[in-house]
Design a binder for these strands. Structure first.
Lengths: 115, 115
DNA sequence: CCACCTATATCGACCATCGATATACTGATC
DNA sequence: GATCAGTATATCGATGGTCGATATAGGTGG
């Protein structure tokens, strides 16, 4: 029973958008499985987090949804990236990279570099 | 008037611990300036965030503090890493690296890699 | 003496995420 | 044909980290 970590703060919307970009239109449950899979089963998305995020992204206009039927013949809501969503994905990607670079700087900086 | 970004969620404790490791014992105000400096003046630490974090770290035993006088002859509380704090720094560093690797995977993965 | 910088501190608010809980339908197993 | 596991959506209260505003006080330089 391996324990899977929580999603790091502030990265879930980014991962959802990226997953939709990668895979095309998907339903929420599928997105959460994909995220688990891409992470090498290292993280699990809480359902109580996922659906509010999808709702919020839709309200922002980043994604649109409509009801459909899965390959398993189950009713599900399919989400698709909009042009706004692609733009937002770009922005959030850049922000993440800056954040990562910033934190990384703390690991490489030496005391002598600082006055 | 350049605007500085907020500290990314979940990274402040790590940056505080790392700064104390780098610089040795420091007071809170100094820590916040260092963080700003190391980030290339790209981020600013909110005082209303910093002191609660220091308090929490002290309660966890990661740091200890005592009152002293700065080189400017001002009263200040100096914080120092404990052995527990060094351990915690190691753990949080590893966690951050894993997080960064995980998020990074979303940018390199291709649809064909996924079944 | 006044303005600015240093320095610590608290408070309410906000927002992302968690954990628990509920519902319903499908396919497989006994 | 009953039961169970897996699929799928959804809501709710709680938690935790950070923000923004606010308060206090002492030292330094103009």
């Amino acid at each position: 029973m391996k324990e899977r970590a929580d999603v790091p703060q502030g990265t879930l919307a980014l991962m959802v958008l990226k997953t939709l970009e990668l895979m095309g239109p998907m339903h929420g449950y599928g997105v959460s499985r994909r995220i688990g899979q891409i992470s090498g089963d290292l993280l699990a998305v809480n359902q109580g987090t996922l659906y509010p995020v999808l709702l919020k992204l839709e309200q922002e206009g980043a994604i649109v949804s409509d009801w459909g039927v899965t390959e398993n013949n189950r009713r599900a809501r399919f989400y698709e990236l909009t042009r706004v969503g692609r733009k937002q994905l770009e922005v959030e990607t850049r922000q993440w990279e800056q954040t990562a670079a910033l934190v990384g700087r703390f690991f490489t900086v030496k005391a002598e570099d600082l006055t």
